Amino acid sequence: MTASLSSQSNVEPAAFPVLIEHEARYADLDPSRRIGRDALVRWFEDARVAVERETFGADLVARLQSRVRLLLAAVRVEVLAPLTVAGSYRIGIGVSQVGTTSFTYRYAVFAGDDLVATGESTSVHTDGERPAPLTDEVRASLEPLRIGVPASGRPERGEARLVRENYPFRWDARVRFTDLDTNRHVNNVALAAWYLDGLAELHADVLGYPVGGPLDGLSPSTLSVQYLDEVHYPGIYQLRVGVEDIGEDTVRYVCGLFDERRCIGFAEAEGFHHAPGEGGDPVRLAEALAPFRFKA
């Protein structure tokens, strides 16, 4: 796997061809009073849509007339420092890789000149049914956005991750009408939030379902999602969670989203397995999470 953007300590706003001012909203906050991971996925979507509108006219009319058909295949977010609702941020966006049918954006969130979060997403060009080669027009439009930062890679896709029973923990997700986007299927941000909800349900189960939910410090600092198929309304889907690895301080989770037995998406996440309790003493979950090991 190539080095992530966050590993480069000298990354500055000037490294990105496009910088977008973004005000934090109260609705972006999670229970920790910080900007939530799903909110950052939405920020990246806002930046991506703005860039595509300006770059090759990928507005709603263009999409409906089939001039540009792009579907999100994967997204990743990594929080490097707490993001608060106070102040404004700048989102840097550039294209790090262009393939035959897809291309990859890299994102960076700056508070002043300080890098506080990074991200990545892969968009696939389709003919309406399957991946299709990028047109020369789209390729030419992407060139001014190129940035010399390698892609960090998608979540590992192995046969074991496609098997529903390999994930010990189950949470059922019911699609809400408000989860849908203009393509009439569940939006990528809503799906990212489902994985975060699944992890929170696991933590709450281990903690005994405390009032107000699990401890703030247990939220993952990284989340990588890969979308395999569309999720439709109405419907109830199974989200499965397993613990892949437990280290000295952190835990790595794997998640799968299933329509019956068919895997339609999966994710990886990493965060701490301990956090300060209400009395100030740390609450440690490593031992309690061990029975939820992913059955590789």
Rank of each mutant, 00 (worst) to 15 (best):
A62T: 13
A111S: 15
L83S: 00
A62K: 05
D197Q: 13
V95E: 01
E230W: 03
G256V: 11
Q97G: 05
T178P: 05
F110K: 00
V75K: 00
R157Y: 05
G36M: 02
S102P: 11
A81H: 07
A58Q: 08
P13T: 06
V41F: 10
A62S: 15
D30F: 01
L145C: 10
A140E: 12
V85H: 01
V124F: 05
L115E: 01
A62V: 08
V211R: 10
R146H: 13
A108Y: 01
R184N: 13
P144W: 07
A27V: 12
E201P: 00
E137I: 12
A204V: 05
A288L: 14
I264A: 06
D136T: 12
D229G: 11
D181V: 06
P144H: 10
G212Y: 10
G92Q: 00
G112V: 10
R48M: 14
G119R: 00
A74I: 03
D136I: 08
F294N: 00
T104H: 08
E12Y: 05
G92S: 02
R139L: 15
V149M: 11
V283T: 10
R67P: 08
G242Q: 01
A39T: 04
V163N: 01
K295R: 15
V116W: 00
P291F: 07
F16D: 01
L289S: 06
D30S: 06
G271S: 07
M1Y: 11
E143T: 15
L19S: 02
E143L: 13
A58W: 09
R261F: 05
S219K: 04
D127A: 07
R262H: 13
R37G: 13
E248S: 15
R164Q: 13
T178Q: 14
R176P: 11
V283F: 09
L134W: 04
I35M: 07
Q97A: 13
L80Q: 05
S219H: 07
H274C: 09
I264Y: 02
V49N: 03
A111F: 03
L191A: 11
A296H: 06
Y227W: 10
E230L: 06
S6D: 13
A290D: 06
L199V: 11
F56Q: 02
R69Y: 03
G99P: 08
E137Y: 07
L142Y: 07
G279P: 01
Q238T: 15
A39H: 01
A173Y: 04
D229Y: 03
S7G: 15
A24Q: 05
G256R: 02
F272S: 14
G280N: 07
H232C: 04
L115S: 03
V225L: 11
R174W: 00
Y237Q: 06
P214A: 14
I93D: 01
A140Q: 12
V231P: 15
R146E: 08
H125M: 08
D59Y: 08
V225Y: 04
A24S: 15
Q238Y: 05
L162S: 09
F169Y: 09
L196I: 14
E230R: 13
F272N: 09
F177L: 11
Q8V: 13
H203N: 08
F177G: 00
M1G: 14
G87Y: 04
A190H: 03
R130P: 00
P234L: 08
V189G: 01
E12H: 12
R106G: 05
T101S: 13
S7F: 09
V61N: 11
E230C: 03
L257A: 08
V283I: 15
